[in-house]
Design a protein around this nucleic acid. Sequence first.
DNA 1: CGTCAAGATGTATGCGCTTGCATCACTTGG
DNA 2: CCAAGTGATGCAAGCGCATACATCTTGACG
Lengths: 345, 345
Amino acid sequence: MRRLIGNPTLSDVAEVAGVSTATVSRCLNAPERVQEETRKRVMEAVQALGYSPNFGARVLAEGRTHTVGAIIPTMDNAIFSRGLQAFQEELRESGLMLLIASSSYRPEIEEEQIRALVKRGAEGLLLIGFQRSDDVRAFLAAQQIPALVAWAWQPDAAQPCVGFDNHAAMAAMAREVIARGHRQLALISADPAVNDRALVRIEGLRAAMAAAGLDPATLVIETTDATLESGGLAFRRLWERPNRPTAVLCGTDVLAAGALTAARDLGVAVPDAVSITGFADLDIARITAPPLTTMHLPHRRMGREAARMLVRMIAGERVESRELDCSLVLRGTLAAPRDRETGQR
Amino acid sequence: MRRLIGNPTLSDVAEVAGVSTATVSRCLNAPERVQEETRKRVMEAVQALGYSPNFGARVLAEGRTHTVGAIIPTMDNAIFSRGLQAFQEELRESGLMLLIASSSYRPEIEEEQIRALVKRGAEGLLLIGFQRSDDVRAFLAAQQIPALVAWAWQPDAAQPCVGFDNHAAMAAMAREVIARGHRQLALISADPAVNDRALVRIEGLRAAMAAAGLDPATLVIETTDATLESGGLAFRRLWERPNRPTAVLCGTDVLAAGALTAARDLGVAVPDAVSITGFADLDIARITAPPLTTMHLPHRRMGREAARMLVRMIAGERVESRELDCSLVLRGTLAAPRDRETGQR
DNA sequence: CGTCAAGATGTATGCGCTTGCATCACTTGG
DNA sequence: CCAAGTGATGCAAGCGCATACATCTTGACG
């Protein structure tokens, strides 16, 4: 059913310009193959009619949509928005448009959105994390849609990915904390059941503890969702327990900022009474008081690199997964634990 | 040129199921019009072949893409990301996909992206602010693409919009500041030349000053871009001037948080030595120390409402512009000015 | 037992564009 | 002066799907 009745078509333009539709099409897509004079006449007709090519027809004839899709848990989390912005900017350089969908961290919605994006003509997909059903993977393979996993990198990844080694990064953070003398550690984390990056970070943390001679079983974990409030509530729960941790590591800066705010509200001094660390080095890490010790992630670089890789995958090239470096940023929320009895460091 | 050679088509499915293409099409789009038994056979064939309808063909035949576009200055600014997330969620309810582009606050990029989105089949557009060339407006009118302006509302708006009254909101904030006794005001703002919301806020501020008997010409304005660092630098510039303001109003929470951080680094106590106010009530407003006095904006409600309105516009309905309420949130960064000589309030 | 309505399915057209191939006009070298 | 080459343009065949309309089947009812 035609909806945009009256919209001018190629042949309208052709008629006005006194040429064939083929020539008009060439004027638009390969101007160098048309004589200057003819082209001028055609372009005038295009202007006069306000012609804009019909998308569906173009896609059908050309077989390409020039569109890629991205499915992220939510745009409303700075951990994704900066990289996504860079991803989109880089895509634009390659003449691709970006379709965005979100999963709210729910696998079934992610699956639905993957199918929706493919149905909508996405030529490639950007996905977050590795956790995905075999069904979906089979579907993507059958449709021959390249998918790139971002915000995560694993040495043994079966699919192309770009990101950082969450295991190693969290382990590095834990080593730093333990080196300061902390023995009672807690973690505020996203639910590892629906967030494989969180799971890997937990494992990294446990590995570092074991390596340092601490019993990983002593690690207290508060699982929560990814908001500021949740981080605060998790901290409060932690603080009500009998054995208060001397250091609270957080899965993201957002949780850490929430924890920090809760600590302030509870009158708990940071880092004197408790150390808190973040993860991601978002803007908020610099505005808390004290500023947050965290793990710096190369957000924009990852977004750009993801776009470049996906473009090549769509072109049919093989790409190598890429691990990007993280670096520890020591700011004000991590210090040696104070002896609870004597008050001495 | 066919790219996805070998992808099964409707007629492949029809052949396998032993029916016509029309029946297969009906099975997929209007199952109730096909007999149970036939449908079962067809669906099996669909499964067996891993059939997925060709997007271009569908769009061409149906005349709809079920896609809308949004062009925002940047995703990497929490002032947009929360509303955008809600916008996308609501769109999903209506079975629409979201194409996202960004302008980096540059009109020429915005224009390019508008054309690109239309070319990619956007049935409707979400735009930020009113500032736009006549060319673009004419183009959208000619293409019959409905466009909704969001993040801004003006009483006399010629086009449909949804948002808040930036003029009134900033005036309200200014009245509050002035009522505390502040006479020397400064503003850290985005460049009003490329950001009409910023311009309107400046006007609202000036109007409130005039109404309170202050000379609007005494307002010092630092124009800058929308990042945390920029907010901090602007505050430092302000602080180097001979007449230091007693209150610094900021165009967004991001700028305010930057200013607050700079103040901390400079050893300037907030709100004792200077008051600072934000605008938007982002997450960061609650984690600064002290927490930021700011103007609360209904981000998610605006996003949802924008989606609903745009859906109706695409359906050909007329919609009324909607103004959403803001509310002042008094937290810790605004207080009466202290007399610089005596130290008294 | 005939008639007709309703439901199920098939036939065939058109959506607007791209592009391989054909055609035509012209140039150039032998 | 002609043949071959070159560049510009036209012709027409799809691309894969939705759907109006035609056809066929079946059952109800008089």
